[in-house]
Design a protein around this nucleic acid. Structure first.
Ligand SMILES: [Zn+2]
Ligand SMILES: [Zn+2]
Ligand SMILES: [Zn+2]
Ligand SMILES: [Zn+2]
Lengths: 137, 137
DNA sequence: ACCTCTAATGTTATACTATTACATATGTAA
DNA sequence: TTACATATGTAATAGTATAACATTAGAGGT
């Protein structure tokens, strides 16, 4: 593959397994669990948990998806400048997850740590909420 | 036990299993994993994972300990007004965890969600950092 | 003291989440 | 081509957490 194609590598450089896992998360838009992804992609050729976890790890590293720690689930990044900083709202009643979009969020959140002796690498912020529709009903 | 003792019930109302799990976390001060707690308390009579998880669940509910989601560990609450809101720094190199103490933190963090249509129940904020001593070395 | 209800316990089995280990293949660059 | 890094495939295993059910302990009311 010559360098003439290198400008289109943004998503093209993903491998087959990474691609199909990303596509599934993209099409779903919801948080999915690793073993659900495995089951969903059996027909595409995924056979073992490790294949899923390896793809997920890489996609997290690339910033294309996020892991929501408290529910052991993965979701497509719905933002463009997260790096590895994540912020979500998670409805405690229906489970709906939304990524918080706020371009000043990173600075605001980081300001919360007053201790200048430590260097902040990244953060994960999870809000447990009652979403609009669950609040009504 | 007559009501003359009820003023000292703050910690007295814990059951034996809850007590020994809390004591271990208190004495450790570090985040501990459930199965480590189980191994450590075999001699005190804990035999099964469920006994540990039940005690941990209760202590979390009481606000005496916190779960650090991203490392599947539990740590004594080192603050007095967390309710179920949690904020930690976690060193990516040495693993040291500290609870962030800041009495204005709750308001500051909650302000980050602009969407008034949802009701915030609680939050969990995890900062990944390079701690002071790891930064030097 | 007795009854009643709730919460906690003990135990076994099982479900769910994630990694180790190792052999093989693929892509990239000198 | 050779070398190196990265990704794959597969099997086994480690680590985290809950379901189900029978039993017991504790608090409160009568
Ligand atoms: Zn994102
Ligand atoms: Zn909801
Ligand atoms: Zn606390
Ligand atoms: Zn450190």
């Amino acid at each position: 593959m010559s360098s003439i194609h290198s400008h289109s590598k943004k998503n093209q450089s993903l491998t087959k397994n990474q691609r199909i896992v990303l596509d599934l998360l993209q099409n779903s838009g919801e948080p999915l669990k690793a073993y659900f992804i495995l089951d969903s992609l059996k027909k595409e050729g995924l056979n073992s948990p490790l294949q899923v976890y390896r793809a997920l790890d890489k996609l997290v590293e690339l910033g294309k998806i996020h892991k929501i720690e408290s529910i052991n689930s993965f979701i497509i990044c719905n933002n463009s400048n997260c790096a590895s900083n994540t912020a979500f709202t998670i409805c405690e009643r229906c489970g709906k997850v939304k990524e918080i979009k706020n371009k000043y969020l990173k600075d605001s959140v980081s300001d919360l740590v007053k201790d200048n002796q430590l260097e902040i690498t990244r953060y994960n912020l999870e809000f447990y909420v009652l979403c609009k529709s669950c609040k009504i009903n």
